[in-house]
Design a binder for these strands. Structure first.
Lengths: 260, 260
DNA sequence: CGATACTTTGACCGCCCTCAAGCATCGTGG
DNA sequence: CCACGATGCTTGAGGGCGGTCAAAGTATCG
């Protein structure tokens, strides 16, 4: 998985295949290379940007760029220098840590509004791959860090997001450490539903842009167990499996399993 | 487990047994009820306070109190209102989340220098119990939060700690999700060793103030498995079990197992 | 259409959990 | 001082959940 454009205008984007991002992700201008239009941004209230004044938006727009990329693009890789911080505006990312022997732990999925770069570390702590076509804003880490110190509002907001993220990580520890396969899958689906509900409103359709393997590596299970568990829950009429997701039939039952 | 002194000068400390904290924890004045002496604090460089100027120390001292408590004291409980934030200066705490059916996930152990209250949430996300006699500083959450906004240095430092904590939580997800029992125990011991090394300097003796059950609930295992795994590693001469901890014999081997 | 990646299903097995019992340590009270 | 109960730790025997291995089915894309 070589990194193309490490020194290109795109930053450290890379893809296993190659080229032709422009028409594949449908961005105009090609690759969506443009200053972000923060005031028009659909998810700004749900994101870091939510805490900003109009003049602060301008400061952000000046240092940032709006980009897009097709599925399977690697935004950045674990261990590499963290040159940028990111804000996802559309699509979904898989955030994963790789072990030397090939095992993988997915530490989260980023959805629109999510901020990447909370770690403030000089290198990335995990790899971020697009599991669907994505749009996102990209800010040079140094500029962003500098902006932080002059805008206590922004820093405070980032701190709130970091602590929210920490709380979520601790919830996930409970899932990984204490729950059965069925409980894990149920908790995952309820979690995804709630996250999409904040974006699109409550809905019985839960999108699952990631693969079964991604889910398995997120829950500390194998693909087979995830597949079997989903199949069983579908057989028990808790939901039906539809392309790219599930349609919930018995939300109460799913919640009961998840919160067991 | 009733909370004594919810409205007392001590804040929300509670213990299953009762009274007599003064001589049992050996604090003078009784209960260690005193303004903290931040400038004299042994672990200030390793803690939040590390980022402060002398005048900022004074501000902290004004709003805070130095306290101590014997083992098994509950500093605060999951779900209760978070009236205070804390800074541990001595001893160790178990931070745990309880499931409705009695299962428990230990989300971490606090050691001297660790800050509690990063979540910035109105209620506590986990229960904090002393696993050994502890000394700590306590700050009213509102005053502390207010101080934060007037001291960008302090906020920035807290943000760094939060992101460090988040990174650690993601590491722990890898341990919980991907590693075998033996790898979990090894990773735990290496982790504890490193944390104590920052406090006391590198040393082959690793203190384990918590019980086997605490370790098990931290690693997503059972007591029996933890006990058996420790016994096996001891049999293989990786370490010897000593009161309140282990003495490492083969650090390299332990690291090899942990990082597998 | 053929290649590739993803998903599902089945059969088997092993790691870790469960259940049970014995042992060590410690604080308490007679 | 020792008896005791409580708490924590260890060890053994057996079973089950989820992992492993294998193969077939399905969708996607060049």
């Amino acid at each position: 998985m070589e990194a193309i454009g490490e020194k290109s205008a795109l930053g450290s984007l890379s893809r296993p295949e190659a080229r032709a991002e422009a028409h594949r992700c449908g961005c105009k201008p090609p690759n969506g290379l443009a200053a972000p239009d923060c005031l028009e941004c659909a998810i700004k209230e749900l994101s870091v940007c939510g805490a900003l004044d109009p003049d602060e938006f301008e400061a952000l727009e000046r240092i940032g760029r709006s980009l897009c990329a097709p599925a399977k693009t690697t935004l950045f890789e674990q261990g590499r220098e963290a040159s940028f911080v990111y804000n996802l505006t559309s699509g979904a990312l898989r955030l994963a840590k790789l072990l030397p022997d090939g095992r993988r732990q997915v530490v989260g999925f980023a959805l629109p509004g999510d901020f990447l770069g909370l770690a403030l570390a000089p290198t990335h702590m995990f790899t971020a791959d697009a599991v669907s076509p994505v749009k996102f804003c990209q800010f040079p880490r140094a500029s962003f860090s500098h902006l932080l110190m002059s805008k206590p509002h922004l820093l405070r907001r980032l701190m709130e997001i970091a602590s929210q993220e920490l709380t979520l990580a601790q919830e996930q520890m409970v899932v990984l450490g204490q729950r059965s396969a069925e409980e894990k899958v149920a908790a995952f689906l309820i979690g995804m539903r709630e996250r999409y509900a904040r974006l699109n409103g409550q809905c019985v359709y839960v999108p699952l842009p990631m693969t079964r393997l991604d889910i398995a590596d997120y829950l500390g299970l194998t693909v087979e167990t995830v597949s079997r568990t989903i199949a069983r829950l579908a057989r028990e009429k808790v939901f039906v499996v539809v392309p790219e997701g599930v349609r919930l039939l018995d939300v109460a039952k799913l919640k009961r399993i998840a919160e067991a």
